[in-house]
Nucleic acid binder design. Structure first.
Lengths: 218, 218
DNA sequence: TGGTGTGAAACTTTTCACAGCT
DNA sequence: AGCTGTGAAAAGTTTCACACCA
Protein backbone atom coordinates (compact mmCIF):
# COMPACT_ATOMS: atom_id res chain seq x y z
CA UNK A 1 0.00 0.00 0.00
CA UNK A 2 2.53 2.60 -1.09
CA UNK A 3 0.05 4.54 -3.24
CA UNK A 4 -1.15 7.67 -1.50
CA UNK A 5 -4.66 7.98 -2.94
CA UNK A 6 -7.49 7.27 -0.53
CA UNK A 7 -10.99 7.45 -2.07
CA UNK A 8 -13.04 10.45 -0.95
CA UNK A 9 -15.79 8.24 0.42
CA UNK A 10 -13.26 6.51 2.61
CA UNK A 11 -11.74 9.77 3.86
CA UNK A 12 -15.21 10.87 4.94
CA UNK A 13 -15.64 7.71 7.00
CA UNK A 14 -12.25 7.61 8.70
CA UNK A 15 -13.24 10.20 11.32
CA UNK A 16 -16.28 8.09 12.18
CA UNK A 17 -14.10 5.03 12.71
CA UNK A 18 -11.70 7.14 14.72
CA UNK A 19 -14.43 8.30 17.06
CA UNK A 20 -15.61 4.71 17.59
CA UNK A 21 -12.04 3.54 18.19
CA UNK A 22 -11.37 6.27 20.73
CA UNK A 23 -14.53 5.28 22.58
CA UNK A 24 -13.33 1.68 22.63
CA UNK A 25 -9.92 2.73 23.93
CA UNK A 26 -11.60 4.73 26.69
CA UNK A 27 -13.56 1.61 27.60
CA UNK A 28 -10.23 -0.27 27.73
CA UNK A 29 -10.97 -2.41 24.69
CA UNK A 30 -7.62 -3.58 23.35
CA UNK A 31 -8.64 -5.37 20.17
CA UNK A 32 -11.57 -5.05 17.80
CA UNK A 33 -12.82 -6.59 14.58
CA UNK A 34 -14.21 -5.15 11.38
CA UNK A 35 -17.63 -6.38 12.45
CA UNK A 36 -17.53 -4.66 15.81
CA UNK A 37 -16.17 -1.45 14.34
CA UNK A 38 -18.81 -1.57 11.61
CA UNK A 39 -21.54 -1.78 14.22
CA UNK A 40 -20.14 1.18 16.12
CA UNK A 41 -19.75 3.24 12.95
CA UNK A 42 -23.09 2.36 11.40
CA UNK A 43 -21.72 0.71 8.25
CA UNK A 44 -21.08 -2.90 7.18
CA UNK A 45 -17.93 -4.86 7.87
CA UNK A 46 -16.82 -5.22 4.25
CA UNK A 47 -16.70 -1.46 4.00
CA UNK A 48 -14.63 -1.18 7.15
CA UNK A 49 -12.10 -3.71 5.89
CA UNK A 50 -11.89 -2.11 2.47
CA UNK A 51 -11.52 1.36 3.96
CA UNK A 52 -8.82 0.32 6.43
CA UNK A 53 -6.97 -1.56 3.72
CA UNK A 54 -6.24 1.78 2.03
CA UNK A 55 -4.18 2.76 5.07
CA UNK A 56 -2.16 -0.44 5.01
CA UNK A 57 -2.41 -3.94 6.43
CA UNK A 58 -2.79 -3.12 10.07
CA UNK A 59 -5.01 -6.01 11.10
CA UNK A 60 -4.18 -9.55 12.10
CA UNK A 61 -6.06 -12.38 10.37
CA UNK A 62 -8.11 -14.41 12.76
CA UNK A 63 -7.70 -11.77 15.44
CA UNK A 64 -8.69 -8.28 14.33
CA UNK A 65 -7.19 -4.85 14.87
CA UNK A 66 -5.23 -3.47 17.80
CA UNK A 67 -7.29 -0.47 18.88
CA UNK A 68 -4.46 1.78 20.03
CA UNK A 69 -2.35 1.08 16.97
CA UNK A 70 -5.24 1.65 14.60
CA UNK A 71 -6.08 4.94 16.32
CA UNK A 72 -2.52 6.03 15.75
CA UNK A 73 -2.61 5.09 12.07
CA UNK A 74 -5.95 6.75 11.37
CA UNK A 75 -4.83 9.89 13.20
CA UNK A 76 -1.65 10.02 11.20
CA UNK A 77 -3.47 9.51 7.92
CA UNK A 78 -5.98 12.25 8.71
CA UNK A 79 -3.24 14.64 9.73
CA UNK A 80 -4.52 14.93 13.29
CA UNK A 81 -1.07 14.66 14.77
CA UNK A 82 -0.74 18.38 14.17
CA UNK A 83 -3.19 21.00 15.40
CA UNK A 84 -5.23 23.12 13.04
CA UNK A 85 -6.05 26.68 14.12
CA UNK A 86 -9.52 27.73 12.95
CA UNK A 87 -11.02 31.16 12.31
CA UNK A 88 -14.77 31.71 12.32
CA UNK A 89 -16.35 34.53 10.30
CA UNK A 90 -19.80 35.65 11.43
CA UNK A 91 -20.75 35.95 15.09
CA UNK A 92 -24.47 35.28 14.79
CA UNK A 93 -26.27 32.43 16.54
CA UNK A 94 -24.41 29.75 14.67
CA UNK A 95 -21.01 31.43 14.92
CA UNK A 96 -21.49 31.70 18.67
CA UNK A 97 -22.53 28.08 18.98
CA UNK A 98 -19.54 26.86 16.97
CA UNK A 99 -17.11 29.08 18.88
CA UNK A 100 -18.31 27.49 22.11
CA UNK A 101 -18.46 23.95 20.76
CA UNK A 102 -16.19 21.68 22.77
CA UNK A 103 -15.97 19.01 20.10
CA UNK A 104 -13.65 21.11 17.93
CA UNK A 105 -10.83 21.86 20.34
CA UNK A 106 -11.04 18.32 21.73
CA UNK A 107 -10.09 17.06 18.29
CA UNK A 108 -7.28 19.54 17.68
CA UNK A 109 -9.26 22.22 15.91
CA UNK A 110 -8.84 25.22 18.19
CA UNK A 111 -10.92 28.28 17.41
CA UNK A 112 -8.37 31.10 17.55
CA UNK A 113 -10.51 33.97 16.30
CA UNK A 114 -14.04 35.13 15.61
CA UNK A 115 -14.53 38.02 13.21
CA UNK A 116 -17.66 40.00 12.30
CA UNK A 117 -18.35 43.06 10.18
CA UNK A 118 -20.88 44.51 12.63
CA UNK A 119 -19.11 47.29 14.59
CA UNK A 120 -21.59 46.76 17.45
CA UNK A 121 -20.35 43.21 17.92
CA UNK A 122 -16.64 43.89 17.57
CA UNK A 123 -14.97 43.93 20.96
CA UNK A 124 -17.61 41.87 22.75
CA UNK A 125 -16.58 38.54 24.23
CA UNK A 126 -17.59 35.02 23.26
CA UNK A 127 -16.04 32.62 25.73
CA UNK A 128 -12.31 33.33 25.74
CA UNK A 129 -12.45 35.19 22.44
CA UNK A 130 -12.96 38.84 21.62
CA UNK A 131 -14.82 39.45 18.37
CA UNK A 132 -12.50 41.17 15.88
CA UNK A 133 -13.31 43.23 12.78
CA UNK A 134 -13.19 41.47 9.41
CA UNK A 135 -10.36 43.79 8.43
CA UNK A 136 -8.16 42.08 11.00
CA UNK A 137 -8.46 38.75 9.24
CA UNK A 138 -5.25 38.89 7.24
CA UNK A 139 -3.20 39.79 10.29
CA UNK A 140 -4.82 37.10 12.44
CA UNK A 141 -4.36 34.40 9.82
CA UNK A 142 -0.68 35.21 9.55
CA UNK A 143 -0.10 35.52 13.29
CA UNK A 144 -2.04 32.40 14.31
CA UNK A 145 -1.17 30.41 11.22
CA UNK A 146 -4.86 29.76 10.58
CA UNK A 147 -5.39 26.85 8.22
CA UNK A 148 -9.17 26.55 8.16
CA UNK A 149 -11.87 29.20 7.87
CA UNK A 150 -15.49 28.67 8.84
CA UNK A 151 -18.15 30.87 7.24
CA UNK A 152 -21.22 31.53 9.43
CA UNK A 153 -22.33 34.77 7.81
CA UNK A 154 -25.62 35.40 6.01
CA UNK A 155 -25.70 34.17 2.41
CA UNK A 156 -25.15 37.63 1.00
CA UNK A 157 -21.73 38.06 2.61
CA UNK A 158 -20.45 34.53 2.07
CA UNK A 159 -18.66 35.12 -1.24
CA UNK A 160 -16.85 38.25 -0.13
CA UNK A 161 -15.81 36.66 3.16
CA UNK A 162 -14.54 33.63 1.26
CA UNK A 163 -12.48 35.89 -0.99
CA UNK A 164 -11.08 37.66 2.02
CA UNK A 165 -10.14 34.32 3.57
CA UNK A 166 -8.41 33.18 0.41
CA UNK A 167 -6.55 36.50 0.14
CA UNK A 168 -5.44 36.09 3.74
CA UNK A 169 -3.96 32.70 2.88
CA UNK A 170 -6.61 30.24 4.06
CA UNK A 171 -6.80 27.14 1.89
CA UNK A 172 -9.65 25.20 3.50
CA UNK A 173 -13.14 26.54 4.08
CA UNK A 174 -16.18 25.11 5.82
CA UNK A 175 -19.22 27.00 4.58
CA UNK A 176 -22.42 27.13 6.65
CA UNK A 177 -23.93 30.00 4.69
CA UNK A 178 -26.74 28.95 2.35
CA UNK A 179 -24.86 30.11 -0.72
CA UNK A 180 -22.49 28.64 -3.29
CA UNK A 181 -19.04 30.15 -2.98
CA UNK A 182 -16.51 30.24 -5.78
CA UNK A 183 -12.84 29.92 -4.85
CA UNK A 184 -9.57 29.19 -6.67
CA UNK A 185 -8.80 25.57 -7.39
CA UNK A 186 -6.21 25.15 -4.67
CA UNK A 187 -8.77 25.94 -1.96
CA UNK A 188 -10.90 23.12 -0.55
CA UNK A 189 -14.48 23.88 0.38
CA UNK A 190 -17.00 21.77 2.22
CA UNK A 191 -20.49 23.01 2.76
CA UNK A 192 -23.07 22.26 5.40
CA UNK A 193 -26.51 23.60 4.64
CA UNK A 194 -28.91 23.00 7.48
CA UNK A 195 -32.06 23.87 5.54
CA UNK A 196 -31.03 21.55 2.72
CA UNK A 197 -30.67 18.64 5.12
CA UNK A 198 -34.24 19.17 6.24
CA UNK A 199 -35.45 19.39 2.67
CA UNK A 200 -33.82 16.07 1.86
CA UNK A 201 -35.51 14.48 4.87
CA UNK A 202 -38.77 16.06 3.75
CA UNK A 203 -38.47 14.38 0.39
CA UNK A 204 -38.11 10.90 1.86
CA UNK A 205 -40.80 11.61 4.45
CA UNK A 206 -43.19 12.53 1.68
CA UNK A 207 -42.22 9.45 -0.30
CA UNK A 208 -43.08 7.24 2.65
CA UNK A 209 -46.51 8.85 2.83
CA UNK A 210 -47.08 8.39 -0.90
CA UNK A 211 -45.99 4.77 -0.82
CA UNK A 212 -48.19 4.07 2.20
CA UNK A 213 -51.12 5.55 0.32
CA UNK A 214 -50.42 3.34 -2.67
CA UNK A 215 -50.22 0.26 -0.47
CA UNK A 216 -53.62 1.02 1.01
CA UNK A 217 -54.86 1.23 -2.56
CA UNK A 218 -55.76 4.85 -2.88
CA UNK B 1 -40.91 9.94 -16.86
CA UNK B 2 -43.54 7.95 -15.00
CA UNK B 3 -41.03 6.09 -12.83
CA UNK B 4 -40.82 7.53 -9.33
CA UNK B 5 -37.23 6.77 -8.38
CA UNK B 6 -34.92 9.75 -8.20
CA UNK B 7 -31.28 8.92 -7.41
CA UNK B 8 -30.13 9.97 -3.95
CA UNK B 9 -27.39 12.15 -5.34
CA UNK B 10 -29.98 14.04 -7.37
CA UNK B 11 -32.32 14.47 -4.40
CA UNK B 12 -29.47 16.03 -2.47
CA UNK B 13 -28.91 18.59 -5.23
CA UNK B 14 -32.52 19.57 -5.89
CA UNK B 15 -32.65 21.92 -2.88
CA UNK B 16 -29.53 23.67 -4.19
CA UNK B 17 -31.14 24.21 -7.58
CA UNK B 18 -34.29 25.37 -5.85
CA UNK B 19 -32.44 28.02 -3.88
CA UNK B 20 -30.75 29.29 -7.04
CA UNK B 21 -34.06 29.33 -8.91
CA UNK B 22 -35.79 31.25 -6.14
CA UNK B 23 -33.01 33.83 -6.22
CA UNK B 24 -33.48 34.16 -9.96
CA UNK B 25 -37.21 34.59 -9.56
CA UNK B 26 -36.62 37.31 -6.97
CA UNK B 27 -34.37 39.03 -9.48
CA UNK B 28 -37.20 38.78 -12.02
CA UNK B 29 -35.41 36.30 -14.23
CA UNK B 30 -38.10 34.51 -16.23
CA UNK B 31 -36.07 31.91 -18.09
CA UNK B 32 -32.80 30.13 -17.38
CA UNK B 33 -30.59 27.49 -18.94
CA UNK B 34 -28.81 24.46 -17.56
CA UNK B 35 -25.54 26.36 -17.89
CA UNK B 36 -26.72 29.32 -15.90
CA UNK B 37 -28.29 27.16 -13.23
CA UNK B 38 -25.14 25.06 -13.07
CA UNK B 39 -23.08 28.16 -12.40
CA UNK B 40 -25.40 29.28 -9.63
CA UNK B 41 -25.46 25.83 -8.05
CA UNK B 42 -21.76 25.11 -8.34
CA UNK B 43 -22.04 22.04 -10.57
CA UNK B 44 -21.76 21.42 -14.32
CA UNK B 45 -24.53 21.75 -16.85
CA UNK B 46 -24.72 18.08 -17.82
CA UNK B 47 -25.49 17.25 -14.21
CA UNK B 48 -28.22 19.86 -14.07
CA UNK B 49 -29.88 18.50 -17.21
CA UNK B 50 -29.62 14.91 -16.07
CA UNK B 51 -30.97 15.78 -12.62
CA UNK B 52 -33.88 17.78 -13.95
CA UNK B 53 -34.71 15.07 -16.47
CA UNK B 54 -35.66 12.79 -13.56
CA UNK B 55 -38.48 15.20 -12.74
CA UNK B 56 -39.79 15.22 -16.29
CA UNK B 57 -39.21 17.15 -19.49
CA UNK B 58 -39.82 20.63 -18.25
CA UNK B 59 -37.38 22.51 -20.47
CA UNK B 60 -37.71 23.83 -23.99
CA UNK B 61 -34.98 22.97 -26.52
CA UNK B 62 -33.15 26.01 -27.74
CA UNK B 63 -34.69 28.13 -24.98
CA UNK B 64 -34.16 26.71 -21.50
CA UNK B 65 -36.36 26.41 -18.45
CA UNK B 66 -39.15 28.65 -17.22
CA UNK B 67 -37.98 29.66 -13.76
CA UNK B 68 -41.39 29.88 -12.07
CA UNK B 69 -42.57 26.59 -13.53
CA UNK B 70 -39.38 24.79 -12.60
CA UNK B 71 -39.60 26.14 -9.04
CA UNK B 72 -43.08 24.70 -8.83
CA UNK B 73 -41.99 21.30 -10.10
CA UNK B 74 -38.95 21.05 -7.82
CA UNK B 75 -41.03 22.13 -4.83
CA UNK B 76 -43.66 19.54 -5.61
CA UNK B 77 -41.07 16.81 -6.04
CA UNK B 78 -39.39 17.67 -2.74
CA UNK B 79 -42.70 17.77 -0.93
CA UNK B 80 -42.33 21.42 -0.01
CA UNK B 81 -45.92 22.21 -0.87
CA UNK B 82 -46.81 21.04 2.60
CA UNK B 83 -45.26 22.34 5.81
CA UNK B 84 -43.19 20.12 8.08
CA UNK B 85 -43.34 20.84 11.82
CA UNK B 86 -39.96 20.22 13.47
CA UNK B 87 -39.07 19.40 17.07
CA UNK B 88 -35.57 20.07 18.43
CA UNK B 89 -34.17 18.01 21.31
CA UNK B 90 -31.34 19.61 23.25
CA UNK B 91 -31.28 23.30 24.14
CA UNK B 92 -27.54 23.83 24.28
CA UNK B 93 -25.65 26.29 22.09
CA UNK B 94 -26.50 24.49 18.88
CA UNK B 95 -30.13 23.84 19.79
CA UNK B 96 -30.56 27.53 20.55
CA UNK B 97 -28.92 28.56 17.29
CA UNK B 98 -31.10 26.21 15.25
CA UNK B 99 -34.27 27.26 17.06
CA UNK B 100 -33.54 30.86 16.11
CA UNK B 101 -32.40 30.10 12.58
CA UNK B 102 -34.59 31.92 10.06
CA UNK B 103 -33.70 29.67 7.15
CA UNK B 104 -35.84 26.83 8.46
CA UNK B 105 -39.20 28.49 8.82
CA UNK B 106 -38.63 30.40 5.57
CA UNK B 107 -38.55 27.06 3.80
CA UNK B 108 -41.56 25.57 5.50
CA UNK B 109 -39.80 23.84 8.38
CA UNK B 110 -41.30 25.54 11.42
CA UNK B 111 -39.72 24.75 14.77
CA UNK B 112 -42.74 23.97 16.95
CA UNK B 113 -40.97 22.77 20.10
CA UNK B 114 -37.67 22.62 21.91
CA UNK B 115 -37.22 19.96 24.59
CA UNK B 116 -34.43 19.40 27.10
CA UNK B 117 -33.89 17.03 30.00
CA UNK B 118 -32.29 19.70 32.21
CA UNK B 119 -34.95 20.85 34.73
CA UNK B 120 -33.12 24.18 35.06
CA UNK B 121 -33.72 24.92 31.38
CA UNK B 122 -37.32 23.75 31.20
CA UNK B 123 -39.66 26.70 31.20
CA UNK B 124 -37.13 29.26 29.97
CA UNK B 125 -37.81 30.99 26.68
CA UNK B 126 -35.95 30.74 23.38
CA UNK B 127 -37.50 33.18 20.94
CA UNK B 128 -41.21 32.37 20.81
CA UNK B 129 -40.70 28.92 22.31
CA UNK B 130 -40.74 27.71 25.89
CA UNK B 131 -38.38 24.81 26.56
CA UNK B 132 -40.36 21.70 27.46
CA UNK B 133 -39.30 18.56 29.32
CA UNK B 134 -38.34 15.52 27.26
CA UNK B 135 -41.27 13.68 28.79
CA UNK B 136 -43.62 16.00 26.90
CA UNK B 137 -42.29 14.83 23.56
CA UNK B 138 -44.95 12.24 22.80
CA UNK B 139 -47.76 14.67 23.51
CA UNK B 140 -46.15 17.47 21.49
CA UNK B 141 -45.50 15.22 18.51
CA UNK B 142 -49.13 14.15 18.45
CA UNK B 143 -50.55 17.61 19.01
CA UNK B 144 -48.33 19.42 16.52
CA UNK B 145 -48.08 16.53 14.07
CA UNK B 146 -44.30 16.73 14.18
CA UNK B 147 -42.71 14.97 11.24
CA UNK B 148 -39.03 15.69 11.76
CA UNK B 149 -36.89 15.54 14.90
CA UNK B 150 -33.54 17.26 15.28
CA UNK B 151 -31.07 15.91 17.85
CA UNK B 152 -28.75 18.53 19.37
CA UNK B 153 -27.95 16.72 22.60
CA UNK B 154 -24.53 15.51 23.75
CA UNK B 155 -23.42 12.21 22.20
CA UNK B 156 -24.32 10.23 25.31
CA UNK B 157 -28.01 11.08 25.13
CA UNK B 158 -28.44 10.80 21.37
CA UNK B 159 -29.54 7.17 21.21
CA UNK B 160 -32.11 7.43 23.98
CA UNK B 161 -33.52 10.65 22.54
CA UNK B 162 -33.72 9.00 19.12
CA UNK B 163 -35.65 6.10 20.62
CA UNK B 164 -37.98 8.48 22.33
CA UNK B 165 -38.57 10.29 19.05
CA UNK B 166 -39.32 7.05 17.25
CA UNK B 167 -41.67 5.94 20.03
CA UNK B 168 -43.44 9.28 19.74
CA UNK B 169 -44.03 8.65 16.05
CA UNK B 170 -41.27 10.66 14.36
CA UNK B 171 -40.01 9.04 11.17
CA UNK B 172 -37.26 11.45 10.08
CA UNK B 173 -34.32 12.51 12.22
CA UNK B 174 -31.53 14.99 11.67
CA UNK B 175 -28.71 14.11 14.06
CA UNK B 176 -26.12 16.71 15.09
CA UNK B 177 -24.80 14.68 18.02
CA UNK B 178 -21.40 13.12 17.38
CA UNK B 179 -22.76 9.60 17.76
CA UNK B 180 -24.16 6.85 15.55
CA UNK B 181 -27.82 6.27 16.30
CA UNK B 182 -29.64 3.05 15.55
CA UNK B 183 -33.29 3.28 14.53
CA UNK B 184 -35.88 0.99 12.92
CA UNK B 185 -35.76 0.67 9.16
CA UNK B 186 -38.76 2.85 8.46
CA UNK B 187 -37.05 5.86 10.07
CA UNK B 188 -34.77 8.07 7.93
CA UNK B 189 -31.71 9.55 9.56
CA UNK B 190 -29.29 12.13 8.25
CA UNK B 191 -26.33 13.16 10.28
CA UNK B 192 -24.30 16.34 10.38
CA UNK B 193 -21.09 16.07 12.35
CA UNK B 194 -19.29 19.37 12.59
CA UNK B 195 -16.03 17.98 13.93
CA UNK B 196 -15.94 15.38 11.16
CA UNK B 197 -16.25 18.05 8.50
CA UNK B 198 -13.19 19.78 9.92
CA UNK B 199 -11.27 16.50 10.06
CA UNK B 200 -12.02 15.88 6.39
CA UNK B 201 -10.75 19.36 5.52
CA UNK B 202 -7.70 18.70 7.67
CA UNK B 203 -6.91 15.60 5.63
CA UNK B 204 -6.90 17.47 2.34
CA UNK B 205 -5.04 20.40 3.87
CA UNK B 206 -2.32 18.05 5.02
CA UNK B 207 -2.20 16.39 1.61
CA UNK B 208 -1.62 19.73 -0.04
CA UNK B 209 1.32 20.33 2.30
CA UNK B 210 2.78 16.89 1.59
CA UNK B 211 2.41 17.28 -2.16
CA UNK B 212 3.98 20.74 -2.04
CA UNK B 213 6.95 19.28 -0.16
CA UNK B 214 7.35 16.58 -2.78
CA UNK B 215 7.25 19.12 -5.58
CA UNK B 216 10.04 21.09 -3.95
CA UNK B 217 11.99 17.86 -3.89
CA UNK B 218 12.22 17.04 -0.25
C1' DT C 1 -28.93 28.53 -33.88
C1' DG C 2 -28.86 27.16 -29.26
C1' DG C 3 -30.02 24.42 -25.56
C1' DT C 4 -32.57 20.20 -23.99
C1' DG C 5 -32.90 15.25 -23.17
C1' DT C 6 -30.59 11.05 -23.08
C1' DG C 7 -28.17 6.77 -24.43
C1' DA C 8 -23.59 5.15 -23.78
C1' DA C 9 -18.95 5.43 -21.76
C1' DA C 10 -16.13 6.38 -17.85
C1' DC C 11 -15.49 6.57 -13.26
C1' DT C 12 -16.48 5.82 -8.30
C1' DT C 13 -18.31 3.27 -4.61
C1' DT C 14 -20.28 -0.73 -2.58
C1' DT C 15 -20.83 -5.45 -1.98
C1' DC C 16 -19.56 -10.23 -2.61
C1' DA C 17 -16.99 -14.13 -1.72
C1' DC C 18 -13.04 -16.51 -0.66
C1' DA C 19 -7.94 -17.37 -0.40
C1' DG C 20 -4.70 -16.89 3.06
C1' DC C 21 -2.78 -16.19 7.52
C1' DT C 22 -2.74 -16.66 12.80
C1' DA D 1 -11.80 -21.65 13.58
C1' DG D 2 -11.98 -17.01 12.75
C1' DC D 3 -11.10 -12.69 10.72
C1' DT D 4 -8.36 -9.98 7.45
C1' DG D 5 -7.25 -8.36 2.84
C1' DT D 6 -8.59 -8.07 -1.76
C1' DG D 7 -9.74 -9.26 -6.56
C1' DA D 8 -13.97 -9.24 -9.12
C1' DA D 9 -18.85 -8.25 -9.77
C1' DA D 10 -22.54 -5.13 -9.08
C1' DA D 11 -24.55 -0.80 -8.29
C1' DG D 12 -24.54 4.03 -8.42
C1' DT D 13 -22.91 8.48 -10.28
C1' DT D 14 -20.80 11.56 -13.48
C1' DT D 15 -19.46 12.98 -17.86
C1' DC D 16 -19.60 12.82 -22.84
C1' DA D 17 -21.49 13.74 -27.11
C1' DC D 18 -25.03 14.28 -30.17
C1' DA D 19 -29.80 13.64 -32.06
C1' DC D 20 -33.59 16.44 -31.85
C1' DC D 21 -36.47 20.26 -31.86
C1' DA D 22 -38.34 25.19 -30.76
Amino acid sequence: MTDRAIPEATVARLPVYLRALVEMAEASVGTTSSGELALAAGVNSAKVRKDLSYLGSYGTRGVGYDVAYLIHQVRRELGLTQHWPVLIAGAGNLGHALANYKGFSERGFGIVALVDNDPAKVGTRVGRLRIEPVEAMERIVRREEVAIGVICTPAGSAQSVAERMVAAGIRSILNFAPAVIVVPEHVSVRKVDLAIELQILGYYEQRKAVLADLAVGH
